[in-house]
Amino acid sequence: MKKDWAPTQDAFRHFLDWLDEGVDSGGEKYLEMRRRLSLYFDRKNCLSPDDLADETLNRVARKLQEQGSITDLSPAHYCYVLAKFVFLEYLRGAQPAQTSFEEPAHSAVQTGLSSSPQKDSEAQAREKLHKCLEHCLAQLPEKDRELILEYYRGEQRTKIEGRYRLAERLGLSMNALSIRACRIRDKLEVCLIKCCRET
C-alpha cells in the first residue's frame, strides 16, 4: 500500500477482513483486487497503473477506518467506485501527490530487452528473458508446469483440440481449465518480471 496516509496495523487487518467478506483468504483477496485495479487502470492507458491501484486501495482503507463499516456496496463494487474517482482525477491532471505521472510505467521485461544498448545487447537480453522463463517454469510445481505448457501449445485448431483433451484428462470443464491456466500464467508473469528486474 502507498504512503501519505498509512493505516494502522489494526485498520489494515480490518480492511483485509472487510475485503474477505467473512472468509479468511490470507490476503489473497487483497492481492487479487490490486491486480484487477491495476489492469483496469492499464486498460485506461494510465501511465502508472500499479500506483493508481495502490492509491485506490489506500482511499478505500481510509474510508473504512473513518466510517467503521461500509455496507451499502460490496467491497469489490466500492473499490470500483473509488477507482473511477481516482481515474477521473488522473484525467483532469489533478494527480495525487504521491503518484508520478510524468514517468512512464517501468517495464522490467522491456528494460531487460532494450535498455542500455551499450551494455546489454538485444540478444543477451533475450537470452536473459529465456533464462528467467526457464527459472520461473522450474519454480512451478510439476503439474502446473505441464498444464501451462500444454494449455498454450499449438496454433488455432490444434490448440483448441489440445485443450479439450487436456480438460478431459484432468476431469475439468473447459472454463475451469482456462481459469487454472490463467492463474498459473499470472504467477509465471509475476516471477518473470521479478527475475528480469533482479538479474
Binding site: N45, A105, S107, Q110, H130, L133
Partner: peptide, 23 residues
Amino acid sequence: LSSAKRREKVQFARALLEREGGA
C-alpha cells in the same frame, strides 16, 4: 501495444512461443 505493461505481456508470450518451438 500503447501500454508498457501490455508490451511486457507480449514479450513474455513471445518467449513462451520461442520456448515451445525449441521444445
